[in-house]
Computed example of a mutant assay.
Amino acid sequence: MTSIVSAIIVLGILIFVHEFGHFLFAKLFGVGVEKFSLGFGPKLIGKKMGETEYLISAFPLGGYVKMVGEGGGDELSDEEKARSFGEKSPLRRIGIVVAGPGFNLIFAWFVFIAVFMVGVPSATTKIGEVVKDKPAAKAGIVAGDRITAVNGKKVDRWEEMATEIAASKGPSLLVEIKRGGETKAFQLKPEMRTGKNLLGETVTSPVIGVVAAGETVIDRYPPGEAFSRGSVQTWNVIELTVLSLVRIIERAIPLDTIGGPIMIAKMAGQQAEAGGVSFLAFMALLSVNLGVLNLLPIPILDGGHLFFYLWELIFRRPVSMRAREIAQQVGLALLIGLMVLAFYNDIARYLVGNG
C-alpha cells in the first residue's frame, strides 16, 4: 500500500508540474485553455473555473492541457481563433510545448538544491570488511580502520576515498588510516578490476579490496554551496539519462532494464521508507527522466510537436496534415510498444521473478 500511495504522490506532483508548464505559458501567450487534467480517460472529479475545467481523470499515468483550437471539429469564432493555439506564431507554440519538459527539469533542479540544504547521508571512511588476499589485506589494513588520506590527500567520506583511488595512475598508493588513537600509513599496489558501469561500458579501475562499514553522517550545505551542488547534480542526471537512452538504442544496456509503473511504485515505496530526503531525490531523478523523455523527437510526445514547429519556423510552412497523421500513427505505435515492453519487464521482474 505504501508503494501505491508513494507512486501516486510522485506521479501526481510530476504530472502537475509538467502540465502546469504548458498551462502557464499558454496563458502567458494568450492561448485559451479549455481543460487541465491530471490523468487520462474518464473524469473522476472536475470543477470549471472561468473558461478552464480542472479534472482528475481515471488513469494517473499522464495528463493533458487542452487548448482552444486543438482537436479540430469545432467552428471557431474570430475571438476564439485569436486565442487558439494554432493561430500563434511557431516560436510561441515552441515555447508552450517546451515549457512542460522544461518545468520538470527546473523542478528537479530546485528539489536537488533543497536536498543538499536539508542534508544528504554520506558514508564515512570506516572499513567494515577487508577482502582476503586483496591489496589492503596484504598490506595489513583491518576491519574497523578509518582511512584518513590517500596519496597525501585528506578524505573523510567514502566517495572521496573511492574517487582518489580511482584517479590514481601510479603503481602504488599511500593509504593513511586511523586505528584507535594511532595513525598508520601503508604503501600498497592497487588491483585492476574490469567491469561494467551504469551505461553498460567496460571499464577498468584500481581497487584495494575494502568494504564500507555503513557508518553515515548527514552533510548539510549552506544555500550557495547547495545551489552549486544541486546544479551539478541536475546536469549529471540529465547527462546520464541521455547517455542511457543512447546506450539502450545501441543495445549496450539491455532492454530488460526498462521499467514501468510497477517498478516506479516499488521504488517510490522503498525511497519513502528510506526517508524524506531519499524520496525527494527519487522524485527529482524521475522528473529529469520525464523531462528528457518528453523531448525525444517522437510524434505524440512534446519533442515530436517541437520538431514540427521547428520545421515550420525554418521552412516558413507547416508540415502537411498527411505527413503529421502518418508521423502520429508511427509515434503512437512506438509509444505503445515501449509501454508493452515496460509492462512485460515489470511482470517478469516482480510478478514472475523474485523481484
Rank of each mutant, 00 (worst) to 15 (best):
K81Y: 02
A137L: 09
D133N: 12
K138V: 08
E70H: 05
V97C: 12
G128L: 13
F107L: 09
S84P: 09
A149R: 15
A99S: 07
D133A: 10
G100M: 05
L61E: 07
N151Q: 13
S89P: 05
E70N: 07
F107M: 07
G144P: 05
E79C: 01
V115M: 01
V150F: 12
P101T: 10
P101M: 02
R83H: 02
L76A: 10
K66S: 04
R92C: 13
K138M: 08
E79V: 02
Y64I: 14
L61V: 05
F110D: 07
Y64L: 10
L91K: 10
N104M: 01
N104L: 00
I147N: 09
A114T: 07
V150M: 14
K126Y: 11
V98D: 10
F110C: 10
R146F: 13
K132D: 05
P90Y: 03
K134C: 10
G72D: 03
I113F: 07
K134V: 08
P101Y: 08
D74G: 10
A149F: 13
V65S: 00
V118L: 06
R93I: 02
F116Q: 01
A123S: 12
K134G: 09
V131P: 04
D78C: 10
E129P: 09
R83Q: 03
G62F: 00
M67Q: 06
W109L: 10
F103T: 08
A99Q: 03
L61F: 14
G95R: 12
F112C: 01
G72L: 04
P121R: 10
G140A: 08
I147A: 09
V130C: 00
E87R: 10
K88E: 11
V120H: 12
P121Y: 05
S77A: 01
L91I: 09
G144H: 04
P135M: 07
A136L: 02
I127N: 08
P90T: 02
P135N: 07
R92W: 15
G119T: 00
G86N: 11
P101E: 04
A149Y: 14
